[in-house]
Amino acid sequence: MTLLPALAGRLGLPGLLLALAACAEPPPELPVNTRLGGDFTLTDHRGEPFQLADQRGRVVLMFFGYTHCPDICPATLARVSQVYRNLKEAGDAERVQPLFITFDPRRDTPEHLSEYVPWFKANVIGLTGDEEQIRAVAEQYGVVYLQSADDGSGYDFTHSDYVYLLDQQGRVRKLYPSDFDIDEVIHDVQSLL
């Protein structure tokens, strides 16, 4: 009896209830991240307008990068594609949509993206826009990126490389590092279907 008030003092009553619930119940569902996210409109790799709100009813795996990036971006694309293909084998791909948003619209035009993203065979939609549009979306999702000076061999970006899990209402439910565990993401996606 002395333990519970002490714990309640530390955790607060909701925290205590959660802690008690955690003992008996399966893990709680993924929390909604209310500080990040929101609708946006960009241009897809077919040159058509793309609005995130049109993805309602689908779980979205979204990340940012650029096609001239040789290391992390293709690796992340490959891993997200693997998640998609595994979900497809499980019969769950219908309501899952991978999105790749470039922050290099100068080089990553719809034409360029249309030759890049289909190669991954995971129904990835490549998204681009003008620099202001992309910067606005990056801000909504807390993505930081900085273009380097062109040293003659081209330029690259310093950037955050999280992968975002959005639920069927377009709300951010989880962020993963780019070297995420494939089974964890599959499990999380399935929990939202």
Partner: peptide, 12 residues
Amino acid sequence: LRAVPPVSPTMA
């Protein structure tokens, strides 16, 4: 080497 789409200018 990581395989990348043919349109890529770079490889790692």
